[in-house]
Every structure is written in structure tokens, then in C-alpha cells.
Design a protein around this nucleic acid. Structure first.
Lengths: 139, 139
DNA sequence: GTTATTGCAAAGAGTTTGCATCTCC
DNA sequence: GGAGATGCAAACTCTTTGCAATAAC
């Protein structure tokens, strides 16, 4: 089921029960869990997994480029398993829910050379803000 | 000199030496300080200012909409005094330097209704990533 | 058998809070 | 004079680290 697990195995990643559980917990669309949420869900499947291992594993997945860190306004970082499916985020200002979205057009092309300040520009993240149906004020 | 101070006074913000110093330290273009950096610079001008007051003041400025929080990948939040000049950010992946940039076009218009998921979309932040001239590899 | 990974517990960074004192308007 | 701001220190949240025990290949 998990593309992620396949890819990791193919890269010679040493497989352990803990790593498998973390990868499984992260798999899916519109998944943006905090480290704590990953730990909670992983613990449900593998009670002896430790917080340190969850952080270690998440850090490696990010280094490998298989998982993206999403810095939201709130406190804890969230982890996004869809690093290979280009997308951006729509975050609810009320409850913090995140949806993956795909805008039209290429935001990279929208930054004129005069605004590069000598930088080599290589990527762009777009974060939309709004209120989800649940948090929207009732008229 | 400070638009920010003018505006705050006009809003009936109770002025104290501490608040003035924080506002002065934040003023300027391409300014994106962490709370700790604000404290350091404020302390240079007003040695008796406390960390709690810096955090309190920054939090209020953010609530008032006069200062923006910028969540970078790294740890500490940064504070951007140009809330009233629409802009986005170009961040160096090497050293974390931030420049304010103004892309052409309207990224909000690039999110089709089919990607709204029922949200009321009200804003958007665009973060460009790259390497600054200092951090770029020398050929 | 080696080498990498795990778990534990403690430390670290960044931020928030409770409360008595002090200061602006 | 009174509402509100300050400073202090402790608490809190999230994350990282050192190291001995353990499990993968």
C-alpha cells in the first residue's frame, strides 16, 4: 500500500518495526501530523516505540527528501508525506486543519529577476489561509 | 522616523520606554528579527528591559496586525514590521537570511474554486527558497 | 559479527505565565 | 488614582542528545 515504504527499501534503508510503523502512519493524502501525533498513532500499533525514535525517523525521512516539514503558525512542526507530489497548502486559521492544494500557474515564474537580489532561486512554497467549513461563522 | 510608532500612538497604545524601544528596533526594510535578537538590541538601548516584556510586546504588535510572524524552517519565529506593505519572502537555505520580495501576479487568483474544499480563502503567503550570493557555491 | 538503530532520561531552545511592583494617562 | 505594563523566575512545549543495550543485514 505504501509507496513510501517501497521507496525506502529500494534506497537500502535498514528496516525496523519502528521505522515501518512511522512510515505507515504517515502514509496518505492530506496527512500533516505533528511528531506527537505520529508518536501517538505509532504507539497504538507498537507500544514500545520511543519518542526519540519517532523524532530520529522523521528527521531522516526529511533528510532523504521523502517527507516535508511544514512550519505552521502554531507550535509544533507538521510532517507531509507527499514530497513527490508537488502541491501547496491551505490552512484553516480557526482549527489549523491543512489541505493539500494545487494552484494553477507557476509561482516561481512570478518572481522577476529584479527581485532575486543575487540569489539562486530554487523553490517556492505557497500557503493559503482561510476558514474551513466547520470554523466559518454561521450567518 | 517610525511609521510604526506613529500608527501605534494613533491607536491609543499606551506608550512606555520599553514598547518604544521594541518598535524602534523592529523598524526598517528587510528586517526579520527573532525575539532574542529584538531583546539583545533593545537591551543595548534600555538595559532594564526584560525578556517577558519583549515577548508581550511582540505578541501585541502581532495581534494589532502591525507586525507579522514569519515561521521559518529553523527554530525561532521572526518578526516582520512591514505588515502594511504587501510582500513575500526569499529565504537563503544556507544562512537563513530573508529578503522581502514582490512577485508579479496575484497568487490568490491562482487557486481555482475546485481547490477551495469549502474554505473561505482570505490570504496567501509565498516563500521563495534559494541561495544568497554569499552562500552560493563558488564555481 | 558489525554496524546501525533503539530507548531512556536528561538537557536544551524557545515561549508563556502568575504575581507583586511600578508607571503612564 | 486606577487600569494597565513591567520584571522576575518558574513552568511549559517541542526537540535534541549521550550512551548502553539491542536488532538488522
Amino acid at each position: 500500500m505504501s509507496d513510501l515504504l517501497e521507496r525506502l527499501r529500494g534506497r537500502g534503508w535498514r528496516m525496523t518495526a519502528q521505522r515501518r510503523v512511522v512510515a505507515e502512519v504517515l502514509d496518505g493524502e492530506h496527512v500533516h501530523l505533528t511528531a506527537d501525533e505520529v508518536l501517538a498513532r505509532a504507539t497504538a500499533r507498537l507500544p514500545e516505540i520511543s519518542r526519540a525514535t519517532v523524532y530520529n525517523t522523521l528527521g531522516e525521512l526529511v533528510s532523504l527528501g521523502e517527507v516535508l516539514e511544514v512550519a505552521t503558525d502554531g507550535r509544533a512542526k507538521r510532517y507531509d508525506p507527499n514530497a513527490h507530489r508537488p502541491h501547496h497548502h491551505l490552512i484553516c486559521s480557526g482549527c489549523g486543519t491543512i489541505r493539500d492544494v494545487r494552484p494553477t500557474g507557476d509561482p516561481l515564474a512570478d518572481l522577476p529577476a529584479s527581485e532575486h537580489f543575487g540569489f539562486t532561486v530554487s523553490g517556492v512554497e505557497v500557503t493559503y489561509r482561510g476558514l474551513c467549513p466547520t470554523c466559518a461563522p454561521t450567518p
